[in-house]
Amino acid sequence: MYKVVERRMIVPNLHELVVEAPAVARSVQPGNFVIVRADENGERVPLSVADWDREAGTVTVIFMQVGASTAKLARLKAGGSIPTFAGPLGQETEIGAFGTVLCIGGCYGIGSVYPVARALKEKGNTVFALLEARSNFLLYWQDRFKEVADRVIEITRDGTKGYKGHLTRLSEILTLEGIKPDRIVVNGCTFQMMKVSEATRPMGIKTMVNMNPIMIDGTGMCGVCRLTVAGATKFACVDGPDFDGHEVDWKEFLNRRRTYNPEEVHPLRKSGCASHF
């Protein structure tokens, strides 16, 4: 059993969960994910790591309540426990000396791209953070990003904070901000990662996306997480989850993500994040 140190809603429908998992905390890297089960009958749900404290032995994830399993996680209280918190899984995000890197986060991806931005900064890159949400009250962790990024840019669909509109405006925003990234890293909703990849393709900027297919084991044993990248089948849990967004077969990916839609009651619309999948 893994002890829950904290679970709180940070913005509507997004929860921060801090779990005591010393072995995971010891070896986790940016871009990794963990497999979580909320109770003994629970599904194995993959969640990206958003932060960790190696000394305290804790790991933080940000999750969005979308279905049965995340609803159970949303009911956890400090002092409670969960049966599974396995990881760290997946390849870590490539942290090189790239020059200028733009880290884009939306939804839970604001959380998971944070350690990526931090590591890229430590590596000596110039780091810009672009945080996306439907409205200003859904943005979070700006303070943390300010500590690790050279500039934090915001965009909301309703224009209540920062730029107004969708990430399809990316090229325009880059011009207005005077940023010429050598690489872009995007974490968050599939739809958003796809849109960013489409926007950056003509600009020829390498764009890494953190893919989030349906998973079971997360160790390469079942193959449900497969996707096509540059014409070849890959298992996201072991070959990824980071891939070059320009090489991903998005149509197939979106179809596969919808496999269990009819079975899973999904209060997605209520969350206002219709693009989560």
Partner: peptide, 28 residues
């Protein structure tokens, strides 16, 4: 990679390990 195509590992794991045959009492 079409929907509806499984590895036997996935199919059997869903059923045996995750008790998918007891869905929705079990979540998978």
């Amino acid at each position: 990679n079409l929907n509806g195509v499984y590895s036997a590992n996935e199919y059997l794991t869903r059923c045996n390990l995750m008790k998918g045959f007891r869905f929705p009492a079990h979540d998978t």
